[in-house]
Design a binder for these strands. Structure first.
Lengths: 341, 341
DNA sequence: TTTAGGCTTGGGAGCGCTCCCAAAGGAGGG
DNA sequence: CCCTCCTTTGGGAGCGCTCCCAAGCCTAAA
């Protein structure tokens, strides 16, 4: 009968007590180097690993943070955005030696059971919530619990939450000014869903930039749902208004828009300039290469983790981190000569 | 001073004992309906949630399964494959009311610390390991522990492990026969890395199919690294051999290959037929639409979870689940008229 | 009436750890 | 030489739960 391998047993083999082994495992002070050496030898020899659940229970901290992505996941996951975000978050959690738990809500009645797992005590120390829509009840719900959380994006009631966002508004404004500076006079907009704050911000930022440049958009606005298909449809519709430029609120929709332009027998950037938002689709994937407003997704993820650890540690005055964007000028806007095509 | 909300406290408020509340929470038998009603009322009123860590410690099961994706993650994540896989796994874990923990190994010396978290007792009940390369030490390491695990893919030493894979070999063979059936006589291959079993299987399956059809491939083989860029380079090199057909071992590499064909002034499928493997890139993204061997990624993920739960429950004779693939004939092979282009 | 057996309930023990305090030993200053 | 203080070590208590067993109660059969 092999007895269970726990602190007590390791201690027994090393001729010390449970407490001393615990101090060695946790790098605590007040352990003589001789004792430490002996205990570490036993640990190496036995392959002892502390029991995570026992540790969580005793220390009231799990070392796990949750990432919550609600609703419509299936379509969202075709977007490289989430992959990048997860990457950033994951690399940050690894760095602070924490574990990442992923909560994806599909459509369906299972939501409430997932929610209750998310906020259950003793599973995660805190939560990063992303892809929320305007008025998302999830945010209110989280605020009703004592679970520390950070929002990626800008919730409506941002005042009372910690959040990390990119400056969608300024980025879109830059796109407008860039197009105007290129001499375009009939700008169009393929907006992102207006039930998301990112969608709203990118739209208003673009309109603001146009106004500054003395341009108006008239009826040249269509709204997509982030999907490539919706971008293609929106562009096809907009072409009837004969725009000479279009700002597309996401890379994926822009890929669809380029396709619509091509299918209409028009040429980008010759007939129409395209600027998109995200900077996530590899430039070489499209012809012409997309000019886009690049957002630092990975950094957003890393920062969200750091912010969350601060909240877990007790930070209480809501902090809003806003990352700047950067305009990457490539071929689709027409500012530089088009290669190949 | 508000006392902590635990089983004892809920019991106190409902006028019953800790044990009885526990039975109610766990849907156990032997509770009178009156008592049950009263306890549930208190739970609803107080918003009580069982403490996950305490539960794990006492029951020796955490309700969490880990997904391990080692090495080179940054590039891998541009591939929709992993998004789909995670989706399938996540939906299956939700269904069985478990939580998904994600372990992404970046390059770097942090690997060992992540590994030790993965196999630490009391964190996860079992692990799904994916994206392993041939001779991956991770598999050996897992076998050295008592942590239940399932491999997505076919490890070298598959005999002794539970795994879920797709029939890469048969799928690639089908592609070869399809191309041969189209009358192509100078087939080429853009293979996936030969340090992966998927890469090896797809290569040998394709060659097997060619042999059956009486075709030989001669020097028309190049190897990519899954990336689009590598597909483009490989195709550019292969064009010197004047192939009239090419099988590309992944969708992403195929997108690159199409680009190389276009850049060389050639036409697909007119000058060269293309068949790819995966069926993951949305068909409309490319022109012409890719004919590909479709693998059921989401199902693989779901099945991996189900298999893992069986292993956790005590299954001990290694089981190998192999999913069939399906050839989706679209435009790039030339079997059907090309739309648009 | 007695006894057996079912249903319901309560409470002890224990999961493996951390936290805290007390005890033991050694060094250094008065 | 004694007292103080610091370092090192051990062990009790407790985290919130599950598991198990015993006790109480009630019903039904003998």
């Amino acid at each position: 009968m092999t007895r269970p391998l726990n602190l007590e047993e390791v201690g027994r083999r090393a001729g010390v007590s449970r407490s001393t082994v615990s101090r060695v495992v946790n790098g605590g002070p007040n352990v003589s180097s001789e004792t430490k050496r002996r205990v570490e030898a036993v640990i190496a020899e036995t392959g002892y690993r502390p029991h995570a659940a026992a540790r969580s229970l005793a220390s009231n901290s799990t070392g796990v943070i949750g990432l919550v992505i609600p609703s419509a996941v299936a379509t969202l996951f075709d977007d490289p955005y989430f992959g990048r975000l997860i990457l950033g978050i994951s690399s940050a959690t690894n760095e602070v030696d924490m574990t990442l738990a992923l909560f994806l809500f599909g459509a369906g009645p299972d939501e409430s059971s997932i929610i209750s797992r998310v906020v259950a005590p003793g599973l995660v120390d805190g939560v990063i919530v992303t892809a929320t829509t305007r008025g998302d009840p999830l945010i209110d719900h989280m605020q009703g619990t004592s679970m520390p959380f950070v929002v990626v994006g800008r919730p409506d009631n941002a005042g009372s939450t910690f959040c990390v966002d990119v400056d969608n508004r300024a980025g879109a404004r830059t796109a407008a000014l860039h197009l105007a500076g290129l001499g375009r006079r009939r700008p169009a907009l393929i907006a992102a869903p207006s039930n998301t704050t990112a969608g709203v911000d990118r739209r208003s930022g673009f309109l603001e930039g146009l106004a500054e440049a003395g341009l108006s958009i008239e009826d040249r606005i269509a709204e997509g749902d982030w999907s490539q298909e919706s971008g293609r449809d929106a562009m096809a519709r907009l072409l009837a208004e004969r725009p000479d430029a279009v700002f597309v609120a996401s890379d994926r929709m822009a890929v669809g828009a380029l396709r619509a332009i091509r299918e209409a027998g028009l040429h980008c950037p010759g007939d129409i300039s395209v600027v998109s938002f995200d900077g996530i689709v590899p430039p070489d994937l499209t012809a012409p290469r997309l000019t886009s407003v690049v957002q630092p997704v990975t950094e957003v993820g890393e920062r969200a983790v750091r912010l969350l650890t601060a909240v877990i540690a007790g930070a209480s005055t809501p902090e809003h981190v806003v990352f700047p964007t950067e305009l990457a000028v490539r071929e689709s806007c027409g500012a530089t000569p088009t290669a190949g095509a």
